[in-house]
Design a protein around this nucleic acid. Structure first.
Length: 620
DNA sequence: CATTTTAAT
DNA sequence: CTGCATTAAAATG
């Protein structure tokens, strides 16, 4: 890392302090250094400016604390490592080798995956409307830079950076407020081109996508590189947006490759084991999606800088008392081997697991004020839940103190809810308790999130009578068998989300799912069925198994409702199944999978994904 | 061991 | 010095 020489580090303490300060500077530097190659920028100078601009702020203080904690954690790792080094580890070495061999054997080199990434997307879109911006340093965002153009990047500006810090780096920086609708529209244009190459392409975020172009190439007998070049040309001529692309045997490699010749370039890694191994061997761990500043540092400290180093240290990683968890271990090993997903999944087939909203505000300790914020969050969440067509069984309250410390508290509710009224009344007690536990609690952010979602999608009787309830349709095929299916290492499992969130690669933005939602949910359908249920009290409801909406806990009313629901359509769809509708015990009139003691969901989704892998990891 | 909370991405 | 979502690991009981 960039090292700023201290004046005179005399005592041991000052030396440590100094090292601490440098790790912190690196920390504050964020992804800009390692993630994106970004040469031609004086990183030392940049980190110095960032450091000085941030110094003294509450945010800075919090980062400082976190950095110290991390340093401590690393010290423990090192101790453990020293302890391990004197032991005989030949057995774990053999186990590791076996594991690696198994993974290696599962390698699939038959597919051509592409990762496409729009160059400085938001900035590029703005520039289309205002060509005069081209040679000026500018960024999109308000408090924080969502993205910035390449001119601004030469000053060290990066996405995710606080605006006032960016201004220090580049006083002439122009800040443009975001126009999400505009970007979503442009993204749709770009995606129109994607479908021609892979109708099942996967959007990783508003400006990123994965495509499997194997079929496209074989059908036309065209080389992947040519196909991608052609696609990029079409994208440019049709949308005036430049994109970068990576072509490789799996999504993980493709993602790394798309970064190599950006902007407006592409890079292909041959579908050849030796080529891949050589490529990974010298690749810094940080380049791998899923490795952030923390894991990177932890790895560095035990001597792992490149993915090749992972193999060198495999015996340390696999152990009865390993330096990292199973998931992380597997993640690292697959990274070393250059393995990854070879399948992509369209957004429509993806089932989300939580819906939430959060808001930063002028810090306050006033209880009345805080309740207002909570109410707003509840109302916002209701809207989002409606858009997502679901309710939640657990509710998570998130707060950020004025010190930037983040706390969460959750409650499981007797029934799934979605109404702001209920969201509020369920979360209020938690807030009250927090206020009680932390006397002068001053907040700068509050958020609400629903998990353990229950779908309220269109009343579809098959959901009830069919083999599985509504929401399971696509979600259950998730887990990949380690040896048969595509590899989705623990870290990046369901890789869509992390990528969308990471402000990584110093390119582009952390596109908000909110934007994406606009694209998939044009209509704001608020079925009037919602209205009729918006009056119940949180205490006692039954969920109608057909329409999934909560009903008053009155057997007669409930049965009437179900009759109405059923007659509406498709009793014929229902006859297929032997699940008898049992009016006597409506609350139990559910298909087996859902029938758990106090109504908790089956543990399928938490337990399942691990299972196939778990036993693979059974190192004796 | 199951559930909750935190932290990382 | 954002906001949303997911996952792994640590803490808790």
């Amino acid at each position: 890392m960039s090292h700023i020489e201290p004046v005179v580090p005399e005592t041991v303490e000052s030396k440590d302090d100094d090292r601490q300060q440098n790790t912190l500077k690196y920390h504050l530097l964020g992804p800009s250094l390692t993630k994106a190659g970004q040469d031609s920028v004086d990183q030392v100078k940049v980190s110095e400016i960032i450091y000085n601009a941030s110094k003294g702020s509450k945010y800075f203080n919090r980062e400082e604390v976190r950095d110290k904690v991390l340093t401590q954690k690393i010290e423990q790792i090192l101790q453990k490592k020293r302890h391990l080094e004197v032991l005989d580890l030949t057995r774990e070495l053999r186990a590791a080798d076996q594991f690696i061999a198994q993974l290696d054997a599962s390698r699939d080199l038959t597919q051509y995956l592409v990762h496409v990434d729009c160059d400085a997307f938001y900035a590029a879109v703005e520039q289309l409307d205002r060509p005069e911006l081209e040679d000026l340093p500018f960024a999109v965002g308000d408090g924080v830079l969502t993205t910035c153009n390449y001119v601004a990047r030469t000053f060290g500006c990066r996405s995710g950076m606080a605006a006032f810090v960016a201004k220090r780096l580049c006083p002439n920086l122009l800040l443009i407020p975001p126009n999400f609708d505009k970007y979503a529209a442009k993204a749709r244009e770009v995606r129109k081109v994607f479908v021609r190459y892979d109708p099942r392409f996967e959007s990783a975020s508003i400006d990123e996508a994965y495509l499997n172009i194997t079929e496209y190439c074989t059908e036309r007998d065209i080389a992947p590189e040519r196909a991608v070049q052609q696609m990029r040309d079409e994208i440019y001529s049709e949308t005036k947006i430049t994109v970068s692309a990576g072509i490789a045997a799996n999504t993980r490699l493709a993602k790394i490759c798309s970064n190599i010749n950006k902007p407006n370039g592409q890079f292909a890694l041959a579908n050849d084991r030796n080529a891949i191994m050589a490529f990974m061997r010298k690749l810094p761990t940080r380049k791998v999606n899923g490795v952030g500043r923390v894991l990177e540092r932890e790895l560095q400290e035990i001597g792992i800088n490149t993915c090749g180093d992972i193999n060198t240290h495999r015996h340390l990683l696999m152990n009865r008392r390993p330096l990292f968890g199973d998931k992380t271990y597997e993640f690292l090993v697959t990274s070393y081997l250059g393995l990854g997903r070879t399948e992509v999944q369209p957004v429509e087939e993806y089932e989300r697991k939580s819906v939430g909203t959060e808001n930063t505000f002028q810090e306050t300790a006033d209880p009345t004020h805080l309740r207002e914020k909570l109410r707003l969050a509840a109302e916002e969440l209701e809207k989002d839940l409606r858009r997502a067509e679901c309710k939640g069984r657990t509710l998570v309250l998130k707060v950020k103190l004025d010190t930037f410390e983040v706390l969460t508290r959750q409650v499981v509710m007797p029934r799934a809810i979605y109404a702001a009224e209920d969201l509020y009344s369920c979360s209020l007690p938690i807030l009250a308790k927090l206020e009680q536990d932390i006397p002068g609690m001053k907040l700068r952010l509050m958020g609400l999130r629903c998990t353990h979602l229950v779908s309220t999608k269109k009343p579809d009787p098959r959901a009830f009578f069919g083999p599985r309830p509504v929401r399971a349709a696509s979600g259950d095929k998730m887990p990949d068998n380690l040896l048969t299916g595509p590899i989705t290492p623990g870290h990046t499992i369901q890789a869509r989300t992390p990528e969308r969130v990471l402000v990584d690669d110093g390119q582009d933005d952390a596109s908000s799912p909110k934007v994406e939602r606009l694209q998939t949910t044009e209509r704001d359908d608020t079925p009037n069925t919602f209205k009729e249920t918006s009056v119940q009290q949180p205490a006692e409801w039954w969920d109608c198994p057909i329409c999934c909406l909560p009903q008053l806990t009155d057997e007669r009313l409930f049965n009437n409702h179900i009759d109405t629901c059923l007659s509406r359509q498709t009793i014929r769809d229902a006859i297929q199944r032997d699940y008898a509708y049992n009016p006597a015990s409506p609350s139990r009139a559910e298909p087996p999978p859902k029938r758990l003691k106090n109504g908790e969901r089956r543990k399928g989704r938490t337990g399942r994904p691990n299972d196939p892998k778990q036993k693979k990891l059974a190192f004796t």
